[in-house]
Amino acid sequence: MTGTVGPDDVDHTEHRDDVVRETAAHHRGRGRLAVAALVALVVGVLGTLWVVQVRSSPPSDFGADAGFARDMQTHHAQAVEMAFLVRDRTEDEEVRTVAYDIITSQQQQAGQMFGWLVQWGLNQTGSRPPMAWVGGEHAAAHARPDGSMPGMATPEQLAELKAATGVEAERIFLRLMIEHHAGGVAMAQAAQDDARTPAVRTLAGAIAAAQTSEIQLLQQMLDARS
């Protein structure tokens, strides 16, 4: 009897223990599930808030929007400078008109870019070198080996233009401006693809189209003077 009661008793206890343990495990499992669900919920909510926040917040200091707005202001400023130089050095109406067109349109576009940066609360001067905002796939828009933006005239080329007059100045201007526009188109195409602000992509597209078409005109004018 003792031999049977003992193990029987133990069996019962063990069985009870198993049930208790199973129930506990069951509770623990449900508890874990609840914690996991809560964590997932919190992560999901925070993630959504983050995306909304990023989407609605102004562009970053390092992105394509700010980079384009800064670099294209500098790029445009040189086009304006060269157009003024040629207007002071020739009487040719065709060249003077295209120069007038470049001065007014590019100065106005530079003003738009200035205004964007003010609205975004960003400095006009970035902390990174020119063209650092351009992605790898836009090789034509990368900075040149000397660190300058694509299409920019060198100080020596500007000095050459300053020293010339008449048709010689016209030829130098047309050559430099074709190169300048080609670089500008590459920059604008990079911004058209990479900027996230619709207004930036729109202006970049307009610049790419206008300068692409103007390159044809400048080339015809250069051919006529060669």
């Binding site: 400023a77 304006v80 400078e81 003024f84 200035f114 400095n123 006009q124 902390s127």
Partner: peptide, 23 residues
């Protein structure tokens, strides 16, 4: 120096931003 240039070059204190620095 870098910080100063970033903040004040064409900065908010500029009376005539975008006016030429050439010509």
């Amino acid at each position: 120096l870098t910080e100063f240039i970033q903040k004040y070059r064409q900065g908010a204190q500029t009376p005539e931003p975008g006016a030429a620095c050439t010509g």
